[in-house]
Computed example of a mutant assay.
Amino acid sequence: MKVLLTGGAGFIGRWVVKQLLNEGHQVWILDDLSNGREENIKEFINHPGLMEFIHDSILNETRLEELFEKNQFQLCYHLGASINVQDSIDDPRTTFNNDTIGTFYILEQCRKHDTKVVFMSTCMVYDRCTDETGINEEHPTKPASPYAGAKVAAENMVLSFYHAYGLPTVVIRPFNTYGPYQKTGGEGGVVAIFINNHLKGDKLSIYGDGTQTRDLLYVEDCARFVVSAGFSDAVNGEIVNAGLGKDISINELAVLVTGDPKNINHVEHIHPQSEIQKLLCNSKKANRLLDWTPKVTLEEGIERTMTWIQQGGLQ
């Protein structure tokens, strides 16, 4: 199929590109490189299935019109977004423009060309988990940051195009994803940051008391989930979660990485109001509709990520 992938030079996008190419599809990547890096997709540049890398923004409507008209995409994976919670609090306009307005521009082109949309949302739209059955798709949302608010707004637009126009769309909410090619600094890279600091002999810094938990999903499992959502009619018009199904406190994660609690520092939280105390995913819907289950344990995923960083992974 002819596939447009926004944000394809990003961390998760890179693995989605790899799977799509392995499956024999023709792939166009659109990325403004605000989060992504050309180095992430360097190995694919000469692949016969990678048709073009376009360095541009999803906010460039004229460019989007040209791309859709010229290439007649059958499927669009929309991963391009501002993803930093702290940045969204400091500069909500940029996040809103990229994540909400940019998504609308993508939807308009997909509507004109009858192109299915797989929209990458986030577990950060949810309120905290309250029991051990985990967060399913019916769980209350709580946009505790402008990032989450922009994603919720975009989700509603994505689903409205399904209901109003019959456009095949799906909203996917992967939980905290980690693995090779994730930046070792910045938002969302707690595993990579911890591993990198551990390998450098630095102490691991934890925001707050460290009792907050995360459901950590290995990136190749995430990419399988993302890709499968594009090729299933069963998820059209749906919201679907994906996670490991086990949560771990940040304190426990730090000990798992460093092996020594003495190598851990607790520091004051920058934006405590946007912290979600407990995140635990219920992926039963993904299993039922997509036959998807995670394959990589947290311990194995950490080992793979550590090996990648030790071997000179991108910083």
Rank of each mutant, 00 (worst) to 15 (best):
P294N: 04
G230V: 04
D291W: 11
F225M: 05
T213L: 02
A242N: 00
Q212H: 12
V257M: 04
A254R: 02
N251Q: 09
V227E: 06
P261E: 05
I193Y: 03
H271M: 12
S232A: 08
G208P: 01
E299P: 09
V227D: 00
I239S: 04
G259A: 00
K285A: 11
E252L: 03
F231P: 08
V257L: 01
P261W: 11
R214I: 01
D233L: 11
G188W: 15
V255A: 03
I270F: 09
N287C: 15
E220F: 02
V235I: 10
V226K: 02
H269C: 12
L244K: 14
L298A: 12
L216W: 04
V191K: 05
Q212N: 10
R288F: 12
C281Y: 01
G189T: 12
Q277V: 12
I250C: 06
G301L: 05
A254F: 11
E300R: 05
E299K: 11
L256A: 13
D247G: 11
D221V: 01
G243R: 12
S205F: 14
V255Q: 07
A242Y: 00
H198L: 08
H271E: 12
R224M: 04
E300C: 13
Y207A: 13
E299M: 11
E299D: 09
V219F: 02
L217K: 10
D209L: 03
G201M: 06
Q277K: 15
T213V: 01
H266F: 12
P272T: 04
L298S: 03
S283N: 14
Y218K: 00
G186M: 00
P272W: 07
V226W: 00
L280T: 02
G301W: 02
I250K: 15
G237Q: 05
V257I: 14
L217G: 00
L290T: 01
V190C: 14
L256V: 05
V227C: 10
P261Q: 02
A286P: 03
E252N: 05
G208T: 06
G208M: 05
G230T: 07
D247H: 14
F231I: 09
W292C: 07
E252Y: 03
F225R: 04
K278W: 03
E275V: 12
E300I: 11
T293S: 12
A192V: 10
S205W: 14
R288N: 07
V257F: 06
R288P: 04
I193V: 15
P294G: 01
T258I: 07
A242C: 01
H269G: 04
A229I: 05
N282S: 07
I250L: 09
L199I: 13
Q277P: 15
V219K: 02
E275P: 06
D260T: 03
K203C: 05
I193C: 06
D260E: 10
K200C: 07
Q277E: 01
F231W: 15
T213Q: 06
E187H: 15
A192S: 14
I270Q: 03
D209T: 13
